[in-house]
Design a protein around this nucleic acid. Structure first.
Lengths: 219, 219
DNA sequence: GTATAAAGTTAGATTAATCTAACTAAATAT
DNA sequence: ATATTTAGTTAGATTAATCTAACTTTATAC
């Protein structure tokens, strides 16, 4: 069994790797807000437990075992987020910190029950995929809204780098998953775009915002 | 803010005090399965934090502050148990260990939402009172089934010293809170009793079992 | 009312997770 | 190609929570 601390390292390794491929000590250290020497010593410990491949001065990589365990923690996190939003009626901007705690609960039956009550969801409230019961994760291929062209109509499929502030920003604009968005124009200067959706005819979105919105083309 | 460890000491102090009044180091040590010297040093720490009145060789007592904080943890525990049984359809014999973990979650909104979804319950699935939002607890006056007389009809109001085994024992006999029970006879030798309820006309219950069943007289 | 037993404390060691300070290796820049 | 910067490691200290062994205080038993 892994400690809560070890679980947090595994999860961070998994999440960072998913974004930027390899993981180095500096990055992990910043992500966890833990000093580098502490990270180094924890990597040696996780290497002893066969969870991480560790060689001095080399990038960090999870072993298959490590990936599986990390995937299972993320599964618990995302199932919990879905439960909090769907069954407990909390806002998608409020669930991260709670799920961060509940993901460490040791009780297979508790999470199986959640899964069942939610009817085996495939994504969390922000559109991120929920790893399966073996810890395996599969991302669908989405496009960033910032990479779409004028005239396209797309469906909001996921939101990434989801800070609470960003999610409140989306709330204020009535944007939620599944929303159909038409791209009206793109400003060449700063790549901000004008979109229309629902009752809103001309909403301006900065490039920073659009890079965090993943969409599916209508097909 | 108290650590998870500190919370466990506070809760144990509160629970033991509720049963047997005063608390001594030996008892607390056994209850938590932690050696006495460790308990002593934690008591000094909690005394520094104004949560416990501590004097060498004297019984342990929670301060008002300590009682309140312990009450709030127990509130979270019992709300959680109710939520797990009522909303998540887990058995009353399965919820203790999960609630033991969830009670440490730091998130007022999470527990407020639970409370709301449960419509502000006053008791947990075993009939124990849920402390109010200030940590204050009020026990109703119940009788042990073992103290009732032949011919009485009583209603099962609470179950105490609830091990998973005992709750399964009750499940096997279709006994649940609210059940009306008529006392048919009492065996003088071992104080076992014969009761009838529902479709069961003559169920034998040992004194050990009856001491854990709290009932209300029909009024 | 002293002897013994039980309960509680003190002292000092251990483990997990963290830190700072000092050092070394690798990458980068002129 | 060497100097400098950045990244990573080693060594040693710190804190919280635990332990064992030895000691002291309180309770109990004859």
């Amino acid at each position: 069994m892994n400690s809560l601390t070890e679980e947090n390292y595994l999860k961070a390794l998994f999440n960072i790797a998913n974004e930027s491929g390899e993981v180095n000590v500096t990055e992990l250290s910043k992500n966890l807000d833990i000093k580098m020497p502490t990270v180094t010593s924890m990597m040696k410990k996780l290497a002893r437990k066969q969870l991480v491949h560790y060689e001095s001065y080399k990038p960090l990589r999870l072993t298959e075992k490590g990936k599986k365990e990390a995937g299972l923690i993320i599964r618990k996190h995302r199932l919990t987020e879905m439960f909090l939003v769907d069954k407990m009626k909390l806002g998608w901007e409020d669930v991260h910190d709670i799920a961060e705690q509940i993901e460490h609960i040791q009780s297979p039956v508790f999470f199986e029950k959640m899964d069942e009550l939610l009817d085996y969801p495939k994504i969390d409230p922000h559109g991120s995929p929920i790893p399966d019961a073996k810890g395996k994760i599969t991302w669908k291929e989405y496009n960033k809204l910032s990479d779409c062209s004028v005239g396209e109509t797309v469906k909001l499929a996921a939101v990434i780098k989801t800070s609470s502030e960003f999610l409140k920003f989306l709330n204020a604009r009535e944007m939620r998953l599944g929303l159909k968005i038409k791209i009206r124009s793109i400003e060449p200067f700063d790549k901000s775009i004008v979109v229309s959706y629902g009752k809103r005819m001309a909403e301006v979105l900065s490039n920073v915002a659009c890079e965090r919105l993943l969409v599916e083309r209508e097909g």
